[in-house]
Design a protein around this nucleic acid. Structure first.
Lengths: 139, 139
DNA sequence: CTGACTGCAAACGTTTTGCACGGTA
DNA sequence: TACCGTGCAAAACGTTTGCAGTCAG
């Protein structure tokens, strides 16, 4: 919590209760959609508006504190920036998981290095069917 | 051209001049945005409407003939479905390239196989600075 | 000839903006 | 106290829908 406040101040973002709750929500639950954030915060702050969610997310994205995760077929999710990781999404139930995959060898392949392209970021999204949903489908 | 017509008929999509031009545009230029498609087709069909672009793209996406490519910071692009490949995007000039990267070993990693997740698709987007833009920045 | 496609306009959902008020630092 | 953040309402934006007319098969 203190760490979160310090991070916000470091980015010249004031520490308001709404903003603090938003960050904690993202930190605890990870990759949330706008709606999930909105309804979740609405329980703590009944008068909170969608505009506040948007403004805060955008401010934090501008400060590289939060990242948008674009996924196939569904709306974007938002998460606190952390070490490079990939996402796995089940097309049946929509469940999203983080996964640590070492892409360094892939990103150093000849095609890229020969082209002179300087890699800064990479995003890998794997979609398919999770274990539970496979079981359900077999029934 | 004949191949394109055959593909459309196979999917029960009628071959109209607008649709044919849209597909050829995608085939020749690859990963185009809605606006790029619109203005490009407007030169051939001055009365074409955005609704037609949207309806056609959606029909073709439903038939797995076209795919949406979601990219960081910019609007989605659309391309004709083809073999699995990744995308490289320059954050300076916005240039997008296809790249063939073998992700099979990555997708077979222990974390995924142990979880019982069945992988159906994967999308890797690499962003950074292209060779040309690196040169420009050094000036 | 029939059903599908086009193009226009309206509707819709999402995101952004402007502004007055309130809270942080 | 000065400025930033909040919340409301309105505006802007992108996309979808409904419909009448047209075209492909």
């Amino acid at each position: 919590m203190l760490a979160v406040e310090a991070m916000l101040r470091e980015k010249n973002l004031k520490v308001t209760p709404q903003r603090l709750a938003l960050v904690c929500e993202l930190r605890d639950k990870g990759h949330l959609s706008i709606e999930e954030l909105y309804y979740s915060l609405k329980s703590k702050f009944p008068s909170i508006s969608l505009a506040t969610i948007y403004k805060n997310l955008n401010a934090m994205i501008d400060n590289c504190f939060v990242e948008e995760v674009k996924l196939p077929n569904v709306k974007s999710r938002y998460e606190i920036s952390k070490d490079l990781h990939s996402h796995v999404i089940c097309q049946e139930c929509g469940k999203i998981c983080d996964i640590d995959i070492d892409l360094s060898s892939v990103l150093k392949c000849d095609t890229i290095s020969n082209s002179g392209f300087e890699v800064q970021k990479s995003a890998l999204v794997i979609s398919g069917t999770c274990c539970d949903c496979q079981a359900k489908k077999q029934k």
